[in-house]
Design a binder for these strands. Structure first.
Lengths: 150, 150
DNA sequence: ATAAAATAAATTGTACACAATTAAATATAA
DNA sequence: TTATATTTAATTGTGTACAATTTATTTTAT
């Protein structure tokens, strides 16, 4: 981030990449909160549902890899979604270690209601369409990099 | 994010802006965790310290505005930093409502140790310098937009 | 001057997030 | 085959994060 000189400046908030990343993520998720509450989901639950809507049934493990969450976070989230009636959690007979997550009819139906959710950002983020595409691309590229180590 | 057609695609993870934002923020903060642990800070505590290093003493309120955190989050974080001996928390005599946060000698000294922290990202994020600058700029612009409403 | 409004922190309750550990099941190797 | 290693979830403990409420203090309007 700091090209050559000014090593003394690295600890200024304005020079950090991580801070706007952290703050922006929080603020954007905050915008989603209200519309999501109307359909009975938290943001984390919404991401889980999006994966299931797109890819269908899936083990807890695969689900966690897709959305960068481990069982410590995912297990309680999935139990809540089960209690809400949106997903089922069943041990595979072929391998009792894996918990298979599947959508209920209610969970599939929720997708229709969720289609308006992304519009919550309209007008809240003052970026042009091209800027959003660029931002999304850079974030995905950065995200890829973090997969390897760690 | 979705320009014209394909409204049915908005709920795919790959088409979302918010998801890579959320995931990337988490992954990057995770990279900071170990080096920060060595100097006795969490990421949130690190942000607080950066603000104090840069701007000096500050009320809890102003601090919270700078880093987008309210008292519900900030009060316990500041109490931990106080317990660690890095900051002081004192009610202003002029206005007993405001808690003034100031650095202790130990807190000021910590800045030297922290100077190597940003290097933790080196090699972990596969973006060029120019891409990082672009990303930082777009994130800050997006962040600005969220200030207004909400 | 004093009641009402506003402000700043603290508190309460819910929901992640993650490192580290544990437990159960399956795969592998000697 | 049977002891060992690996894999998948669940559990435990700590630390945010935030909405909503409460408390104490200060302003403001009457």
């Amino acid at each position: 981030m700091v090209k050559s000189a000014d090593k003394s400046e690295v600890l200024k908030l304005g020079n950090q990449l991580c801070f706007p990343l952290y703050a922006c993520a929080k603020e954007v998720i905050k915008i989603y909160r209200k519309p999501l509450e109307k359909i009975g989901l938290t943001y984390t639950q919404y991401i889980v549902m999006m994966v299931l809507w797109e890819f269908g049934n899936m083990s807890e493990k695969s689900l966690g890899e897709k959305i960068y969450l481990d069982s410590g976070t995912l297990t309680p989230v999935l139990k809540k979604l089960e209690k809400s009636g949106f997903v089922r959690r069943e041990r595979l007979k072929a391998d009792e270690r894996v918990v298979q997550i599947s959508l209920t009819a209610s969970g599939r139906k929720l997708k229709e209601k969720a289609k308006t959710i992304p519009q919550a950002l309209d007008g809240c983020i003052h970026l042009s369409y091209d800027e959003m595409i660029t931002l999304k691309g850079l974030l995905n590229k950065a995200l890829e990099g973090t997969r390897e180590k760690h």
